[in-house]
């Protein structure tokens, strides 16, 4: 059984179908590159998956559980985490706080635990800080020392790293990366991808869906590609199959004029 299967997923905004009868299946361990021109519905697909939008039609089953009309909180608890195309970190909070935000589904938020008897809370704090330090270190050694700095003081690439850590800290089964290269130079992107590939994921590597315009990134890390255009799936297959497909070339480059 697939980890994630979306069948006939449709999302309409008024007369516009941002997603049109989309079928996507993700297996355990897949790294799927989701590509397509601007406005083809990639981010909408993520927003529907994470419950920000409720799909007009279709069904989403994740890990045997129907999550079609669930709230973002419930979907997060089911084990899907994401990053955002435009960084959505809380700039005035520290790196630690931002990363812990991603782990909030596992935190004890009770009044007694947090305010009255604080001993266990402080122990948790220390453990989590050590864990997050390791995680940041695994991604980039210099980042671990900035754990108590506000995110607003970090560079763009560091912010991306923090975002990825935030998505990973809740130990998701499926990770959605929305254009991690946005706003970075090619070198920075390459570096970030190196780090991501080398990452150990604390022993449980999530499946990944990656939206990316930088085709070299897709080529490097994806096991399978899906091409969207006008909310429909144009084609699906390995990187080479997809890039040599004339339909895809047409969608990206237009028709050849003779």
């Amino acid at each position: 059984m697939s980890l994630l299967s979306c069948t006939g997923l449709t999302m309409r905004f008024g007369g516009l179908a941002a997603l049109n009868k989309l079928d996507v299946h993700v297996e355990e361990g897949d790294v799927i590159g989701l590509v397509g021109p601007n406005g083809s519905g990639k981010t909408t697909f993520f927003n529907v998956l994470t419950g920000i939008y409720t799909p007009s039609e279709g069904r989403i089953v994740f890990d045997g559980q129907d999550i079609t009309a669930k709230t973002p909180q419930e979907i997060c608890r089911a084990g899907i985490a994401r990053t955002f195309q435009r960084s959505r970190l809380c700039l005035e909070l520290t790196v630690f706080d931002n990363v812990m935000m991603g782990n909030s589904k596992n935190l004890n938020l009770g009044f007694w635990h947090n305010v009255i008897r604080r001993k266990a809370f402080f122990q948790e704090c220390r453990d989590d800080e050590a864990r997050i330090r390791l995680m940041l270190k695994a991604l980039n050694p210099t980042l671990a020392d900035k754990i108590r700095k506000p995110v607003g003081e970090l560079s763009m690439i560091d912010r991306r790293r923090v975002e990825i850590c935030r998505a990973l800290t809740g130990r998701p089964r499926l990770l959605l990366l929305d254009e991690p290269s946005a706003g970075m130079t090619q070198d920075e992107t390459r570096q970030l991808m190196d780090e991501l590939v080398a990452m150990e994921f604390e022993g449980n590597r999530p499946s990944i869906i990656l939206i990316e315009h930088e085709m070299s990134v897709i080529k490097r890390i994806s096991t399978r590609c899906i091409v969207l255009n006008f909310g429909r799936k144009l084609c699906e297959g390995s990187y080479d199959e997809v890039t040599s497909n004339p339909v895809v070339q047409q969608a990206y480059l237009g028709t050849e004029v003779v």
Partner: peptide, 19 residues
């Protein structure tokens, strides 16, 4: 953690909900 959740809600509702 309560304060963290409250801060997150104030600063970014969408991101908070997604986590």
């Amino acid at each position: 953690w309560m304060g963290l959740a409250m801060d997150a809600v104030r600063l970014d509702e969408t991101a908070s909900a997604c986590f």
